[in-house]
C-alpha cells in the first residue's frame, strides 16, 4: 500500500463467484443466479475495458470444489464475434458460462450441499495474482484485488484458512473486496479491513451490476478520489476454541495462542500442562483495581 498514489499500469482482478445452491437467494428463485452471473460477467468485462493490460480471473466456488471459470486452463476457446461485442468480452462470457455449467454438472448428487469454501478459492486467487506478477515485466506496476460475490454466510470453521489468506493478501498488497448478497459477513469484513478492501452488503439484488460498477470497479489508487461507502466498524473479538463464542476477556495459551473462555489446567490444542497455583503476573494489579 506504499505506492497507493501512483496509478498502476495494469490491474489484476480475481472475481470469486459463490455458486453454492444452498444460498438463500438461489433456493428462493433459481433463475436469479443467471441474472447475477450476467451482472458479474458485465462487471468483469468493464474491468478489462479499463486498461489494455488488465488481467482477469473468475473462480467459481461450489460446495464440492472450486474451479477457474476464466481463464480456462490450456488453450482458450475458439470464439468468433457474433455481434458488435469486443471479441475478448465474448470470449469471457462464453468461457465462464460453459465452464460453470460443467462445474455444476460435476457436483456429487448424493451429497447435501455444505457451506461454500471461499477460503480455498481465495488461496487460488492469490496464487493466480502472484503468477501474473511473476510473468509481467519487472518495470510494470501492477495493482491487484480479489472480489468475492457471495450470498452464503461465513462460519468460524474456516477461520484459520481465512486468516492465513488475509495475512498473505495483506503482505502482497492485494485488496480483498466483499459484495454480500444476503447476510452480514463479519469474518470476511475483517478480511476487507485487514487488506484495505471494501465491504458492501447490497440491499437488493436488482441493479447488482450498478452496485458492482459504482463501488468495486475503481482500483485501489482511484478509490481515494471517489466518494465510496465507508469502512464501518469491524468486530475483532476472538472466538474461544471451546465453545466458539465471541469473548471480550479470555485466556490465551502462551505456547500456541489458543483462546479459551475459562481457565483450564491443560491446553486442548497443544496439550501443554499449565502451571497451576503460580499467580498470573497480572492478577494482583487487577485486584487492586477492583477495590
Amino acid at each position: 500500500m506504499a505506492d497507493d498514489e501512483i496509478p498502476s499500469d495494469s490491474s489484476t482482478l480475481v472475481i470469486i463467484v459463490d455458486t453454492n445452491p444452498n444460498q438463500r437467494y438461489i433456493t428462493e428463485d433459481p433463475k436469479i443466479l443467471t441474472g447475477c452471473l450476467d451482472a458479474v460477467i458485465a462487471f468483469a468485462n468493464s474491468h478489462l475495458m479499463q486498461k489494455s493490460r488488465n488481467e482477469l480471473a473468475v473462480i467459481g466456488c461450489h460446495f464440492h470444489k472450486s474451479e477457474y471459470l476464466y481463464p480456462s486452463p490450456g488453450k482458450p476457446l475458439d470464439v468468433r464475434q457474433i455481434d458488435g461485442q469486443y471479441e475478448l468480452f465474448t470470449l469471457v462470457e462464453k468461457t465462464v458460462k460453459m465452464r460453470l455449467v460443467n462445474l455444476i454438472k460435476s457436483q456429487p448428487q448424493e451429497e447435501k450441499p455444505g457451506e461454500s469454501l471461499l477460503a480455498g478459492a481465495l488461496a487460488m486467487g492469490l496464487c493466480f495474482i502472484s503468477k501474473v506478477r511473476r510473468e509481467a515485466s519487472p518495470a510494470l506496476k501492477i495493482s491487484s484485488r480479489i472480489l468475492i460475490v457471495t450470498g452464503s454466510s461465513d462460519t468460524a470453521a474456516q477461520y484459520i484458512n481465512y486468516m492465513n489468506v488475509f495475512f498473505t493478501a495483506q503482505k502482497q498488497q492485494v485488496l480483498i473486496d466483499v459484495c454480500s448478497l444476503d447476510k452480514h459477513l463479519s469474518l470476511l469484513q475483517q478480511g476487507c479491513d485487514i487488506t484495505g478492501g471494501l465491504y458492501l452488503k447490497v440491499p437488493t439484488l436488482e441493479g447488482l451490476l450498478q452496485y458492482l460498477l459504482w463501488v468495486f470497479l475503481p482500483e485501489g489508487s482511484e478509490r481515494k478520489q471517489l466518494v465510496l461507502p465507508g469502512r464501518g466498524r469491524v468486530d475483532y473479538r476472538a472466538a474461544c476454541f471451546c465453545h466458539r463464542e465471541l469473548l471480550t476477556i479470555g485466556y490465551v495459551c502462551s505456547v500456541c495462542l489458543s483462546v479459551f473462555c475459562k481457565f483450564s489446567p491443560i491446553c486442548t490444542t497443544c496439550h501443554t500442562v499449565f502451571k497451576i497455583g503460580g499467580p498470573l503476573p497480572i492478577k494482583p494489579k487487577k485486584k487492586k483495581m477492583k477495590v
Binding site: 464440492h64 472450486s66 480455498g120 478459492a121 488461496a123 496464487c127 468460524a156 484458512n161 498473505t168 466458539r244
Partner: peptide, 21 residues
C-alpha cells in the same frame, strides 16, 4: 507464506478446521 493448500481448502472434507471440542 500462504500456509493454505488451495486444493484441500476447497474440499469439504479436507479443509483445516479449528480443532474440535
Amino acid at each position: 507464506t500462504l500456509h493454505v493448500c488451495p486444493g484441500c481448502a476447497s474440499r469439504p472434507h479436507l479443509y483445516q478446521r479449528l480443532p474440535d471440542t
